[in-house]
């Protein structure tokens, strides 16, 4: 029994390691795709690795109190936590993580957890941009969580379970079984919320370099920044896997996972390159508008 747990922990660690690397490469390759749109070559795909190593290799750092240090820790914990309760590849022992120990609600909790932890830590930084960024981030998060939650509710109602593995299992057997086709409105609401969640344009108010450079992480540096950068990879990966599982039929092997998550992530870039950024109030208004309505309709449809 104990041995079994250790094996699972080992598997989860390997899975997390793979996901982290995948996440980093994904960020790197997306940067290259963005660069292509912008008419340039772009950074090397492995640049995120170097950046993290560089951050860790910084010699000194300053602190702003305990919460300041805990911010990235919470953030990373949120990212890892999210991933730990999602099965990355359906049916795979290696990638099943602890998905049987937690359900969709726990995952959603972890998604919030990281954000809130970060908010606490960043506010300790004392920099007004951090505070502004945090308040923007939280405000926008509240807004995009509405359509997201609605679509999750729709999915949960549709499949009658909170277990992600079960939801994935329900979508097996041909792409027409995917939520994308069974409940397109929920997916639409969720995808719009996803844009907000990823912080790409037009919902990049949190970092917004031209306005509040660069938001919550303004004061973070050295290995704390390294943690944030790592989390970005983990958290992105976790979200993508979650979306894939909820709406795009999950993945039965790693290749499909890579293809699906890549495409889902690509939507961010696809939209992000075309639009400038909303103001906070505009993005809140946006999320509480069409996506919420769509989400509500999807819930209604699911209920019916």
């Amino acid at each position: 029994m104990i041995a079994d747990i250790f094996v699972r922990i080992g598997y989860a660690a390997i899975s997390l390691f793979i996901l982290t690397n995948y996440g980093l490469l994904l960020i790197g390759s997306m940067a290259r795709i963005s660069a292509k749109v912008q008419g340039r070559v772009g950074q090397p795909v492995w640049q995120p690795y170097i950046d993290i190593i560089k951050s860790i290799a910084k010699r000194n750092s300053i602190g702003h109190g305990v919460m300041f240090y805990l911010g990235p820790v919470f953030r990373l914990a949120g990212g890892i936590g999210t991933y730990m309760f999602i099965p990355a590849v359906f049916g795979s022992v290696l990638f099943r993580n602890f998905s049987d120990s937690g359900d969709l609600l726990l995952v959603m909790y972890f998604i919030f957890f990281g954000q809130l932890g970060m908010a606490l830590g960043a506010s300790e930084g004392g920099h007004p941009y951090s505070a502004l960024g945090v308040s923007r981030g939280l405000a926008q998060m509240t807004a995009f969580e509405v359509p997201f939650a609605l679509s999750v509710i729709a999915v949960v109602i549709q499949y009658g379970t909170l277990d992600i593995t079960a939801i994935v299992a329900a979508q097996q057997g041909g792409f027409l079984n995917w939520t994308l086709f069974t409940n397109p409105l929920a997916v639409l609401a969720a995808m719009i919320a996803f844009l907000g969640m990823s912080g790409h344009n037009p919902f990049s108010v949190v970092l917004a370099p031209q306005e509040i450079p660069i938001g919550p992480p303004t004061e973070y540096h050295s290995n704390l920044l390294g943690m944030l950068q790592t989390n970005r990879a983990v958290f992105n990966g976790a979200k993508l896997v979650l979306y894939m599982n909820l709406f795009f039929g999950g993945a039965t092997n790693i290749v499909i996972m890579v293809i699906k998550t890549f495409l889902i992530y690509f939507i961010n870039i696809f939209v992000g390159q075309a639009f400038p950024r909303f103001r906070t109030d505009q993005s809140i208004r946006f999320f509480l508008g069409v996506p919420t309505v769509v989400g509500i309709i999807s819930v209604i449809i699911a209920v019916l």
Binding site: I33, A35, K36, V37, Q38, G39, R40, V41, F270, Q273, A274, F275
Partner: peptide, 16 residues
């Protein structure tokens, strides 16, 4: 219209 940016992705980069 803004999605017209993607046209650029299929052209030669400006980069020297």
């Amino acid at each position: 219209a803004p999605f017209a940016v993607w046209k650029r992705a299929f052209e030669k980069p400006f980069t020297v």
